[in-house]
């Protein structure tokens, strides 16, 4: 089995062609199918990473990755969850430390895309005081990323022709209004606010956690606009 993942290993004994000669290249068909199909899965899942590194480099990188982290799941839609950790420790790319953050964002977008559906909850009947005391249930497709690099600006520059990124940290909120995940850069305090909501704190407590200078209306607007508030914990 290991020979299927490692091209340095010999073809296992007992595998032959129609004349009983050793299988040789015939075994490589399986070897190539394994590596090729897994590489295609990774390329589909990490398009910006592939664009940043170039297709040839990406395929070589995928070859190293898939041998170090062969799939533990048969659901290929999420294969590659270890890519950020792998990249963070991959010495040849140590001079490009934002690559791991890009991989984290792309994996979060894949997770959001396949997350369970949930209908938005109507909060309009809730007065200010009950609202501040409420503990919100966020949609399964919500993801929060705190990155040391301008990860969403890099993603947009490559996927949507956005402007060149400015080198600064970015906190990113992913919501999924219907089927397509949408990512936003969060303002100051936004990540602490959303993290507190995800941890089950009340809106009031999350607001406290966000600290000074936090514009709660901007972030609530992103959450409501993205259909990300799907219930109240009190109602569960």
């Amino acid at each position: 089995m290991a020979a299927l993942l490692d091209p340095e290993m010999a073809v296992p004994a007992g595998l032959v062609d129609a004349r009983g000669q050793p299988a040789g290249r015939r075994f490589s068909v399986y070897r190539n199918n394994v590596a090729g199909s897994l590489t295609d899965v990774l390329a589909a899942g990490f398009p910006v990473l592939e664009k940043l590194l170039g297709a040839a480099y990406f395929r070589a990188l995928a070859g190293v990755f898939l041998r170090a982290h062969p799939p533990q799941t048969r659901m290929m839609m999420l294969y590659g969850a270890d890519m950020p950790v792998f990249l963070a420790g991959f010495a040849p790319l140590a001079h490009l430390p934002y690559m791991a953050d890009v991989a984290r964002l792309e994996q979060a977008l894949r997770e959001s895309y396949h997350a369970a559906d949930a209908a938005a909850h109507d909060l309009s009947a809730l007065g200010p005081e009950p609202f501040m005391a409420a503990r919100l249930v966020l949609a399964p497709g919500v993801r929060l990323l705190r990155a040391r690099h301008p990860v969403l600006s890099i993603w947009r520059a490559n996927m949507e022709g956005g402007p060149a990124p400015r080198m600064q940290a970015e906190d990113v909120l992913i919501v999924r209004p219907e089927f397509d995940p949408v990512a936003h850069v969060l303002p100051t305090g936004g990540a602490a606010f959303v993290a507190a909501l995800l941890a089950g704190d009340s809106v009031g407590a999350a607001f406290e956690a966000a600290g000074d200078g936090f514009d709660v209306n901007v972030v609530l607007g992103l959450l409501v606009g993205g259909g990300a508030i799907v219930g109240l914990k009190e109602d569960l």
Binding site: M75, M76, Y113, H114, G141, F179
Partner: peptide, 13 residues
Amino acid sequence: AENYMGDGGRPLA
């Protein structure tokens, strides 16, 4: 089968 084992989203819809 494996492409429709996610929890939700467009593929299942």
